[in-house]
């Protein structure tokens, strides 16, 4: 029960910070240079990590699917066509989201958390720079820019790794693997929408954990841990919700 209570408090706190950030954004936009620097930082810090993890994911997915198809249909020519839509609309955005939560979320929480426990946030407030305006706003905009870009990169990496692994394991012709027939505009829209939502939410959740840090290095550690857990859970929960809504929008007929 205490876990539920905690989740509820956490969700309320994040919602409040999200509203504050939106309000602050309407009041004044942060300087473009600051946002770009942050976005570059988010992207730069994650791109290698996402290439590696999503690359392996693509290899695993195509290997499993191919193995299954071989056993049941004796035909592996449709692997590429079948795995691409799943990658684009689900595994791509979700795993990119989880990786960003891990890589960037912990970074934001650690940075802001240590600023809180060393009273730098109080000093900021004394200088007329509120933490939402000065710290949260640019990071949220940066996430909004960087995560969709990382979604493209990550999905591409997974797809390329799949091409390689199907060629090695099942001797699939790369030309056969490159098959976009089963991928629809709706899949791309679903994937992009998820990436945008995760891009906004992960920085907010991480900043929220960081701002709640209390007491020395232990507090920073706690805030960092909480950021990964909350952001990852949010990604998984929203993946389900958005997926279910998209399924409903398509009329459930898969058309």
């Amino acid at each position: 029960m205490s876990a539920l209570r905690f989740a509820w408090d956490e969700a309320r706190g994040v919602a409040r910070l999200l509203a504050d950030t939106a309000q602050a954004l309407l009041r004044a936009r942060p300087p473009a240079a600051v946002v770009w620097a942050q976005a570059f930082d988010v992207g730069n810090r994650s791109v290698f990590f996402i290439l590696v993890t999503l690359g392996f994911l693509g290899a695993i997915l195509n290997f499993q699917t191919g193995f299954q198809a071989q056993r049941i249909f004796g035909d592996t020519s449709l692997i590429g066509a079948a795995t691409l839509p799943i990658l684009v609309r689900q595994l791509g955005p979700t795993l990119v989201g989880l990786m960003v939560a891990i890589r960037v979320g912990t970074g934001i929480a650690a940075e802001i958390g240590s600023m809180v426990v060393t009273e730098q946030v109080d000093a900021l407030r004394m200088c007329g720079a509120g933490p939402v305006d000065y710290l949260v706003k640019p990071r949220v905009l940066a996430g909004l820019i960087a995560v969709p870009a990382l979604w493209v990169i990550g999905t591409g990496a997974a797809w390329m790794a799949g091409l390689w692994v199907t060629h090695l394991a099942f001797q699939t012709n790369p030309a056969t693997y490159v098959n976009l027939d089963l991928t629809r505009g709706a899949d791309i829209a679903e994937g992009l929408f998820k990436a945008v939502v995760f891009g906004i939410l992960i920085p907010v959740i991480a900043a929220h954990s960081g701002l709640q840090a209390r007491g020395g290095s232990e507090g920073v550690g706690r805030a960092t841990t909480q950021a990964v857990v909350s952001a990852s859970l949010a990604v998984i929960v929203l993946d389900l919700l958005i997926g279910a809504v998209a399924f409903g929008l398509r009329g459930g007929a898969g058309a």
Binding site: M115, T118, E119, Q120, A123, R125, M126, C127, G128
Partner: peptide
């Protein structure tokens, strides 16, 4: 509060310098 804080100079116990 921002307007009030502009009239205040605060020396923090543990420095609180921006790193």
């Amino acid at each position: 509060l921002m307007a009030v804080r502009r009239r205040i100079g605060m020396v923090f116990q543990n420095y609180a310098l921006f790193d």
